[in-house]
Amino acid sequence: MNLRPLLASFVRVLCGVRPLPATALPARGPCVFFANHSSHLDFAVLWAALPPAWRERTRPVAGRDYWEKTALHHAVACGLFRAVLIERKKPTVACNPLTAMSAALAAGDSLIVFPEGTRGDGLAVGEFKPGLHHLARAHPAVPLVPVFLANLNRIMPKGRALPVPLIAAVHPGAPLGAVADEGKEAFLARARAALIALHPS
């Protein structure tokens, strides 16, 4: 039985998120959604808000160290959300995060990434890690779509197990222009500014 549509509805009801219209997204996938990160619910909410066809072809990218802690963590990440697990702490040639992400994109799947690398306090968007730049360089034809996630830091902030049922919002923006010869720092700053510009207030 496919639990995923049910799960998506449950997440949307829990967080009060409205489904995104297909017109808010690029004409077709695959693409890379990059979002601000302040809660464990972030990837589930972005995923649940996508139109059903997009949802089936979109995989969150998550840290292997966290999501392989227990069998349950692993089942949720890989079984339910088909997460792409990557090495955050000590990437080597053998376990290069880019390889796994490239394979997913090549298979036609879109990705959800959190370029801050870890959850912040939700009050400000942190500095981006260079991974997004590597990804953009490796796949210049894949659109990079900024998605601002509002209020999730209030629903389930870092370090809290109990959710407060406020209304979250998912604000996708226009894809970033192609990565130019602007250099890593300039590109990351541009991507971060595009995300912050989607802040609703």
Binding site: G16, G122, N151, R154, P157, L162, V164, P165, L166, I167
Partner: peptide
Amino acid sequence: REFITLTPTRPADHL
């Protein structure tokens, strides 16, 4: 839910 969403609260208010 609607009222508190519009109200600026801080992480310390979670409980």
